[in-house]
Amino acid sequence: MTTSMDETRIRTEGLNLFYGPKQALKSVSVDLKKSRVTALIGPSGCGKSTFLRALNRMNDLIDDVHVEGKVLIEGVDIYDPKVDVVELRKRVGMIFQKSNPFPKSIYENVAYGPRINGVNDRSKLDEMVERSLRQAALWDEVKDDLTKSGLALSGGQQQRLCIARAMAVNPEILLMDEPASALDPIATAKIEELIYQLKSTYTIVIVTHNMQQAARVSDDTAFFYLGELIEMDETKKMFTAPSKKQTEDYVTGRFG
């Protein structure tokens, strides 16, 4: 990566998203930068998760979703009919709110992505599994029982396993949908530290309900309300001197 810190990786232009007749996103235009962590905040139902899932077209799985406007990743509109969704999702990884390891061994969980990409060479898989688990700061805890079921791990370990699994396909972007909301404070701290370490390699977009978490982990923050992007700026500024009244009310806990 030879680009400057400020280069745009994801840009949305007038993004509207409808679930049937209900509009969930209203003309969202935003630039998300490389090598930065962007936090999406806002009250429940404000559209931040919907926005996140629009970035790797996970909303496609729901019946009756209709999208207008553009989502450009590296300048390419991902809603263009010519775009291969499967390829897109390899480049844009996703971590879900509820950790969802496959009912397989730790090793097979991480090897899942490489395997579907046709990697079958054992030594190559070994290497990818180790690298991903190390990146997810899980290797030292599980290296001796890689054959153990992924479901036998603790909640925090499961979530880091999911992060390792996502990283094994070498995405450029990681989308995280409240990745720590179901975890205890210690596990949460580990995930946050991990996010901090990963941001040099990945563009990270994280949805969070937790203001302190947004303030701790993110460089930029976007505030959504009722499907609209109210304000987006550097996190420091958003939490100290937001330019919109609604943002200030929300970050100071006056509503939400």
């Binding site: 996970m58 990884g93 699994r165």
Partner: peptide, 8 residues
């Protein structure tokens, strides 16, 4: 979803 998000 996990599988699809991994590009399967």
């Amino acid at each position: 979803e996990a599988s699809l998000a991994l590009g399967a």
